[in-house]
């Protein structure tokens, strides 16, 4: 187990290296001239050239890559072409907003999702089950940007109950967390239902039933407890998906998180920031996947790693 863990951890290094090469070279293929955009329309040719020099944009791309990697090893992701701030600092200041959103999403969605899933499993095949699953698949199919815009139109513009932008007060979290969480809620409802049903078929649950234990206790102390394990791992995977959800949520609700930073940086051809963000996104996702895999092994010893 621990040998496998170390092996997996070590595998991240070449993976991230490959990702860095992909990211770096692909990003420099993006059409558009950052120096020109930075300098603005009224700038002279000399001004543009000076900016290009300042950021090393005139060097061969291979040299630029090695410069970048060298600095990266020292924890330096370079400086934003746009704001001249260190990329690490920019990402750090944006990350809190994205994390807040992710948190706002996972605060309610898994609870509701698992609840629906369990209820559906208990009432399998009956009206409540169908209604619950229809609700879940509806949540899965509703585009986040559409929900967000409708939320703003109804609750902010028309009714004036909630703010339409920002995360300044608790009210500001309501609509974004709705957009962030709907998908997770739906996925978890579906998974917890099926994993509940699977566990209900297991021998120990049958035994418990046969022993005449109350149905309620069978459900919650045996079936639910065990299916929760599987559900938690799915939840972990969904957090990665939340990162992409945050791009849309941040755009709609004018929240200065990492997702909007990515969009803005693509717009400005702010290479160092795009690079840094994609690397961080990838690292987060890879680590989450690793943790989930590990967790899976810890709680389900039947799975062997080799």
């Amino acid at each position: 187990m621990s040998r496998y863990f170390i092996k997996r951890l070590l595998q991240i290094i070449p993976l991230m290296l490959i990702i860095s090469i992909f990211v770096f070279f692909f990003i420099h293929m993006i059409p558009g001239d950052p120096a020109k955009t930075l300098a603005g329309v009224e700038a002279s040719v000399e001004e543009v050239e000076a900016i290009r020099e300042e950021f090393g944009l005139n060097k061969p791309i291979i040299v630029q890559y090695f410069d970048y990697m060298k600095n990266l090893l020292h924890g330096d992701m370079g400086r934003s072409l746009k704001s001249n701030l260190p990329v690490t600092e920019m990402i750090a200041s944006r990350m809190q907003y994205t994390l807040r959103l992710v948190f706002a999403g996972i605060l309610w969605a898994p609870v509701l999702g698992i609840f629906i899933g369990v209820i559906c499993a208990i009432y399998r095949g009956r009206a409540l089950d169908h209604a619950g699953m229809l609700f879940a698949i509806t949540g899965l199919s509703a585009p986040g940007f559409w929900l967000g815009l409708m939320g703003i139109e109804i609750f902010a513009v028309r009714l004036g109950w909630l703010p339409s932008a920002g995360l300044d007060t608790w009210k500001g979290y309501v609509l974004p967390s709705l957009v962030m969480g709907t998908g997770i809620m739906a996925v978890l409802a579906r998974y917890s239902r099926s994993s509940m049903l699977e566990t209900l078929r297991e021998d120990y649950v049958r035994t418990a039933r046969a022993k005449g234990q109350k149905e309620f206790i069978v459900m919650f102390s045996h079936a639910f407890k065990n299916s929760l394990i599987q559900v938690v791992t799915i939840l972990g995977l969904q957090i990665g998906g939340l990162l992409s959800g945050s791009v849309i949520t941040e755009t709609i609700f004018s929240i200065p998180g990492m997702g909007r930073l990515l969009i803005d940086s693509i717009f400005y051809r702010d290479y160092p920031v795009i690079q840094g963000l994609l690397m961080i996104f990838a690292l987060q996702y890879v680590l989450i996947n690793l943790i989930v895999d590990m967790l899976y092994g810890v709680i389900n010893p039947k799975i062997r790693y080799d």
Partner: peptide, 13 residues
């Protein structure tokens, strides 16, 4: 506040 709709709603509220 890049979204036009949001900016106006902010002024109204």
């Amino acid at each position: 506040v890049p979204e036009d709709g949001a900016r106006i709603a902010m002024l109204q509220t």
